[in-house]
């Protein structure tokens, strides 16, 4: 009777032995093969994992935590803004709740190479379409957009020479939030924030909340 028991227990154990041993040995063998990133593109993808909790793996962002859609953003712009966060030029204002969440996360990037790598990875992400989150009057906004077009271009495609990022195809709630931040001085007041200091007076030409909504509504109609 107990002989049967013994063999039963023995069989479970010996069967379950082979797989874990194979896994352990195989795992060790595999792990020895690769001790680090082979190239910048792979490294960029790996480091982008830092951004995924808020911006999602496709870069589509999450309005609930104030993380904008970054899929397909130009690498030069991502790199510049990340560097601003790292240097404390952005995300160091008392009322910049989203910025205070962003700044520590980019400080976790180990080096400038990692910043470059992740910025390039962001550019390779295919753009993700999104809906609009509040109403506005694009016709009224069109007139106001004249000010913006000077730098950001008539189609909102941006202009690297002027340091103006693409704004067409960016989340409307994010544009509105940042315009408000520029207006109130939460963003663009740091002496080292060259582009921000240019942007701030422009944002202050928008008279009120309606103006912000309208101009953002107009930007939403632009095709980059």
């Amino acid at each position: 009777m107990h002989k049967f028991q013994k063999s039963a227990l023995y069989r479970i154990a010996s069967r379950s032995l082979r797989l874990p041993l194979a896994l352990v040995i195989g795992g060790l063998a595999l792990s020895g093969c690769r001790m680090g990133a082979t190239d910048a593109a792979t490294r960029g993808q790996e480091v982008f994992e830092t951004c995924v909790p808020c911006h999602n793996s496709d870069g589509s962002g999450n309005a609930a935590v104030g993380a904008p859609n970054i899929a397909g953003m130009k690498a030069w712009y991502v790199e510049r803004e990340v560097d601003k966060f790292r240097a404390g030029v952005r995300g160091m204002h008392f009322n910049d709740v989203e910025g205070m969440r962003m700044r520590p996360m980019v400080l976790s990037l180990a080096s400038e190479e990692d910043v470059k790598a992740v910025a390039h990875y962001v550019e390779t992400l295919p753009p993700v379409p999104h809906g609009s989150s509040f109403p506005g009057d694009p016709k009224a906004g069109a007139a106001l957009y004249a000010t913006c077009g000077a730098c950001h271009g008539d189609t909102g495609a941006g202009n690297q020479d002027l340091g103006a990022p693409r704004i067409a195809g960016v989340d409307d709630w994010y544009l509105a939030t940042e315009l408000r931040k520029f207006r109130s001085g939460v963003r663009g007041t740091n002496p080292k924030d060259r582009e921000g200091r240019l942007m701030r007076p422009m944002a202050r030409t928008l008279a009120n909340e309606d103006a912000i909504r309208n101009v953002v509504a107009y930007v939403e109609t632009l095709k980059p």
């Binding site: 690769r34 680090g36 480091v47 994992e49 830092t50 909790p53 996360m105 976790s108 180990a110």
Partner: peptide
């Protein structure tokens, strides 16, 4: 080994 590739896992981000 901060921020190094961990063999058998990958990069350890703050969230992970």
């Amino acid at each position: 080994f901060p921020n190094q590739y961990v063999p058998g896992y990958g990069i350890v981000t703050p969230g992970r």
